[in-house]
Design a binder for these strands. Structure first.
Lengths: 199, 199
DNA sequence: GTCTATAAACAGATAGAC
DNA sequence: GTCTATCTGTTTATAGAC
């Protein structure tokens, strides 16, 4: 599944053949079909595993308590650490967010992946809502804030060579990952633009 | 090319066959191969056309002048209008940003697409740099700001069904597009989190 | 669980007529 | 420019031996 993960991350569902995955893992194609009845099954299993891990880690860090702003910062830190630790994860996650119809959605493993994604999103939604209620988070559209957070974190670590080119070196280097955390959190706290009347 | 655009947007380079595109446009597969020597040629042409249009429109709006903060707001408005006007565009753009190796990079049409992307990024970089020099933009890592802007705008309009689910209705509806502009610009101006000592 | 062999459909691409 | 017919390789998936 790790081998499949990396290949699917790079070229997507249609771009990878079962024989290629089998070769990468050192088994025959038939053996792969013995473990996963169809290619869609394997893909759903790969996606589901990643989403489940993200859900688990985010749930864990939010359970540690603290104010909404503090937990939001931790949410960013943990998600970034998670996506940075395995380069394939962000790409698979991004694909699952914008490639709707690759899978029919009827497979049980796909339904489990959908549930994990729903939990991740719902938890973040609740966090933002709580922050607004307490006055720690600026009043704004929660769905749009959510989309912005996803875009800032997930896209960045999915951006591969283009991202490396923009940043000037590997986005997965330890220093650069720490910098991403700081930059994203600074964006959340201060925005980009300095309004003249504020100072 | 419009037909190919929509199909590639949805399922990527490998997920679409030349016969499918031919059928969608009402021609035979051979005729398609007469106009585009290879599938990669067609894909590069589709991507290049989108990037060229984006480059053109962004260049045009930045040429209208104004302060850096003002032009940054306009940059966001124009890019959002552009991506919202044709749902396939954001997905193709996102794919060109995170799917590195789909194309070898040796084709002339691919090189032109790369150049357009480079111009788009370089122009945005200059704008941010200028804004920091004038004090209108908060001092921060320009590459990371760029990545954040791309993530906030491009991902949002590429997010399809998941995005619709998060927002609660079509992200391409006129009202929802206007709201996206407001929300992104508010994010740039104020961030998300309200720092207590500021008020 | 793993393999070889094979089926049946489909892919990208070409030849050549009109 | 468009077509039919075809080539060649690859695809997902299955059958059945070990």
């Amino acid at each position: 599944m790790e081998a499949a993960e990396e290949l699917f991350a790079r070229r997507g569902f249609a771009g990878v053949g079962m024989s290629e995955i089998a070769e990468a893992v050192g088994l025959s194609k038939s053996t792969l079909f013995h473990h996963f009845r169809t290619k869609a099954d394997l893909y759903a299993a790969v996606v589901g595993r990643i989403l489940a891990e993200i859900d688990l880690e985010l749930t864990r860090t939010l359970a540690r308590g603290g104010g909404a702003a503090e937990r939001l910062d931790r949410w960013v830190d943990v998600l970034i650490d998670l996506l940075a630790s395995t380069p394939a994860h962000a790409r698979v996650l991004l694909r699952s967010l914008f490639e709707d119809d690759e899978l029919s959605g009827e497979l049980p493993e796909q339904q489990e992946a959908d549930k994990a994604l729903y939990r991740i999103l719902d938890q973040a939604r609740s966090l933002l809502k709580e922050g607004m209620a307490s006055g720690e988070v600026r009043a704004a559209s929660i769905p749009h804030l959510l989309q912005s957070l996803i875009g800032m974190v997930v896209y960045h670590f999915a951006s591969g060579e283009v991202g490396d080119g923009i940043v000037g070196r590997s986005i997965f280097g330890a220093d650069e990952v720490e910098r991403r955390k700081r930059e994203v959190k600074a964006f959340l706290h201060h925005g980009i633009i300095i309004d003249p009347e504020k100072n």
